[in-house]
Amino acid sequence: METEIPASGRPLTGRRVAVYLLAFFGVVMGVNAFMMTLAIETLPGTVVDSAYRASLAYNHEIAAAQAQATRAWTVAAHVERSSDSRASVRVEARDAKDVPVSGLTVTAWLARPTDRRERPVEIAERGIGVYRGEAADVSSGQWDLVIEAARGGDRVYLSRNRVVLP
């Protein structure tokens, strides 16, 4: 009885099959290790450090939102992006009687919807009830504009708005 020899001229042995299996699984594990490394290095972080502490602050956030609603302020924001990747933000605040709201400490930041890293916007009052600021290194695309206003250390206004910058 004769043993058939494959077209390559070498017989398929147990050692050859073992080498093929080890090479296959070595490539699979190498690619997995590479992809895990990329995923871990590009992970921007967690949304909250402690879900327990965030849940304790939830009732405070509900009360702050209700107080904000009773004030019935109108806050208009406008964002423009220049060709040098700078974004200018203009915020105008008016109370329920349409009177400009002055004397607020306004902070704002731009954040990608899929990323927690933020671009701070340095805001200053430039007129009665008009606040302006700029942020550097803002690329085109979708952003969340978060505006926070405080008076006397207490937050009196908070909003998060999706904007698309060209």
Rank of each mutant, 00 (worst) to 15 (best):
A51R: 09
V28F: 13
R162G: 07
V47Y: 04
V48Q: 01
S139G: 08
S55M: 12
R94P: 06
R126P: 01
R126L: 04
R162E: 08
K97G: 06
E80L: 02
A149E: 06
T105Q: 05
P166C: 03
G127L: 04
M35V: 15
H60G: 15
V27N: 08
T105P: 00
M29Y: 15
P11M: 10
D95M: 00
T37Q: 12
A96S: 11
L38M: 13
A150D: 14
V121I: 15
T42M: 06
R71C: 00
W109V: 02
N32S: 10
L56G: 07
V47C: 08
D137P: 05
A51T: 14
S8A: 07
R162T: 07
V163D: 00
V138D: 09
L38A: 10
P6H: 03
V31T: 13
R90Q: 12
Q142D: 05
S82H: 07
R112I: 00
A87H: 07
A57T: 09
W143D: 00
A150R: 09
D144E: 07
L56E: 12
M1R: 02
A57N: 09
A76W: 00
A23C: 15
P120S: 13
S55W: 11
Q142W: 02
T105C: 00
A51G: 10
E125P: 09
L145D: 03
A149D: 08
E92G: 06
I128L: 01
R15A: 15
G127W: 05
S88C: 00
R71V: 00
R151L: 13
R71P: 03
V164Y: 01
V28E: 10
T107W: 00
P166D: 04
D95T: 09
P44T: 14
E134P: 04
E122I: 09
G129L: 08
G30H: 12
S139Q: 04
T46C: 02
L158I: 01
W109N: 03
A77E: 15
S159I: 00
A76V: 11
Q68Y: 00
V28I: 12
P120F: 01
R71H: 05
R117K: 06
A124I: 10
Y157I: 05
V47S: 07
W143H: 12
Y157N: 11
E41P: 03
T46N: 07
P44L: 10
E148I: 07
L56S: 09
A76H: 07
A136L: 11
S102V: 05
L43H: 15
R160S: 05
R116S: 11
W143R: 01
N32I: 09
S83N: 15
G133C: 11
G9I: 03
L165R: 10
H78M: 08
W109P: 00
L165Q: 15
